[in-house]
Amino acid sequence: MALLSTTSMLEKAKQDKHGIVAFNVHSFDSIFWVLEAAADLKSPVILQTTVGTVKSLGAKNIVEVAKAASEHFNIPTGLHLDHCTDFEVIKEAIRAGYTSVMIDASMHPFEENAARTKEVMNLAKSLGVNVEAELGKVGGVEDDIVVAEEDAEKAVPGECKQFVELTGVPTLAPAIGTAHGIYKGKPDIDFDRIAEIANLVDVPLVLHGGSAIPDEDVRRCVSLGMAKVNVSTELKNAYSAAIRKHFEQEPDSLDPRAYLQKAKEAAIDMAKSKIQMVGSEGRVVPSFV
C-alpha cells in the first residue's frame, strides 16, 4: 500500500470522531513495530520523524522503509515530518516522499508564522502533501526545540480561526496546555479552549505532547476535535527500558535478535494501548485492503 496523505486520513477521523496516533519512530526497526501493532488492530496510523531522525537515517531511506512496511502490513499509513523550522529540510522530505510536514514557526509573531506556513503550503498543496502548523507554544523538548515551562503559551481561539483562513493550512496544532516529554505533574489541559477552537475552525486539530496524558483526558480531547494524537517519549522509553532490562537480567546475551525482540514486544504493546486509547481500532475499511 502506498503512503497516504494524512489530510484525508485526519478529516475522516474527525468526521468519525476518533483519533489517529502519530508515533515518533527513531529507527527502521520501530517503523515495522508500529505498523505491526496497527495491522493487528486494523487501525490507520501515522509514522512521524523529527528533523534529528531525518538527519540520522536519511529522508529517502525512511520513506523507502515506511513504504515497504506499509505494503507488508497493508495498513493505511501516513508519514509526517514533525516540528521542522527549516524550509530546506521540509523540501527534502517532500521530495523524498513524505506525505505530511509540519512547519513550526510558532516561536515567531503571528504574521511571520502565517507567512512561513503559506510558503510551505505553496509548495505542498499541489503535491497533495498535508501541512501542519502550530499556534501558541507547546512546552518541553522536541529534538533541538526547547520551550521552557514559563514560556509556553496557549493558543488564542480567534487567532486560530484567522490563521486557518489566512493560510489554508489543513491541520492545526494549537497549544492547549500539554507539553512534550513525560509530565512532572498533572497536565493542565484547557478543554474549554479546545472546544472553542474546534467550533471556530473546520480542520482537524493535533494534540502535541500526548505521552503520559491519562487515557480519559486524551479521549476527551479527541471527542472535542483533536484528530491526530502525537506519541513519542512513551514509545521510545518502553523499548529502551526493555533493552536495559534484558542486559540487567542477561548481561552476557549479546545477540541483537534477542534484545531487539524484547524491544519489539514492548513497543508493540505500547503502540496498541495508544491505538485503543484514541478509538481507531477496527477502523480500516475494505477499500484499504
Score class of each variant (00 low, 15 high):
46 I>E: 00
48 Q>C: 04
93 A>R: 02
140 G>R: 07
163 F>K: 01
64 E>H: 09
268 I>L: 00
174 P>I: 13
262 K>P: 01
228 K>A: 02
66 A>S: 12
240 S>L: 14
248 E>F: 12
151 D>Y: 12
157 P>E: 02
142 E>S: 14
243 I>V: 15
269 D>S: 14
122 N>E: 15
99 T>N: 03
72 H>M: 13
18 H>S: 02
282 G>A: 01
152 A>S: 14
69 A>L: 10
56 S>N: 11
18 H>G: 03
139 G>C: 12
186 K>Q: 07
123 L>K: 08
276 Q>N: 13
34 V>D: 06
30 S>Q: 10
187 P>W: 12
71 E>T: 12
22 A>Q: 07
187 P>K: 04
162 Q>P: 05
114 A>L: 08
168 G>A: 01
229 V>S: 10
270 M>S: 11
8 S>N: 13
151 D>C: 08
8 S>E: 12
9 M>G: 01
283 R>P: 02
58 G>L: 09
3 L>V: 06
260 L>P: 04
133 A>G: 04
246 H>P: 04
183 Y>E: 05
123 L>R: 11
110 F>V: 03
137 K>S: 10
178 T>I: 08
260 L>A: 07
221 C>W: 15
109 P>W: 10
164 V>E: 00
67 K>A: 05
48 Q>T: 07
157 P>M: 02
201 V>D: 00
108 H>D: 11
160 C>A: 02
124 A>S: 09
23 F>E: 02
270 M>Q: 13
154 K>C: 06
183 Y>D: 02
178 T>Y: 07
91 K>R: 11
73 F>M: 06
54 V>K: 07
230 N>S: 13
201 V>F: 02
165 E>G: 02
233 T>Y: 09
118 K>F: 10
273 S>A: 14
27 S>Q: 09
43 S>Y: 01
15 Q>M: 04
186 K>G: 00
267 A>F: 13
54 V>E: 05
170 P>A: 00
242 A>V: 13
208 H>G: 15
85 T>S: 10
26 H>W: 08
22 A>V: 13
151 D>P: 01
146 V>H: 14
103 I>E: 03
213 I>N: 11
177 G>M: 07
289 V>D: 14
121 M>I: 14
88 E>M: 08
143 D>N: 11
145 I>D: 09
55 K>D: 05
274 K>F: 15
167 T>D: 03
175 A>N: 05
221 C>I: 13
259 Y>H: 12
24 N>K: 06
117 T>A: 03
275 I>Q: 10
203 V>M: 05
165 E>W: 03
87 F>L: 09
172 L>V: 04
14 K>V: 01
52 G>K: 06
42 K>Q: 10
279 G>C: 08
240 S>R: 09
37 A>D: 02
176 I>E: 03
284 V>A: 00
54 V>S: 07
92 E>P: 01
127 L>M: 13
116 R>D: 03
87 F>Y: 15
41 L>Q: 09
157 P>A: 01
153 E>N: 03
250 E>S: 14
98 Y>E: 04
254 L>N: 15
62 I>T: 01
30 S>P: 00
253 S>N: 15
173 A>C: 04
51 V>S: 12
115 A>V: 09
250 E>M: 14
100 S>N: 02
205 L>T: 06
219 R>Y: 15
158 G>P: 08
14 K>C: 02
4 L>S: 06
92 E>I: 05
57 L>F: 10
29 D>H: 11
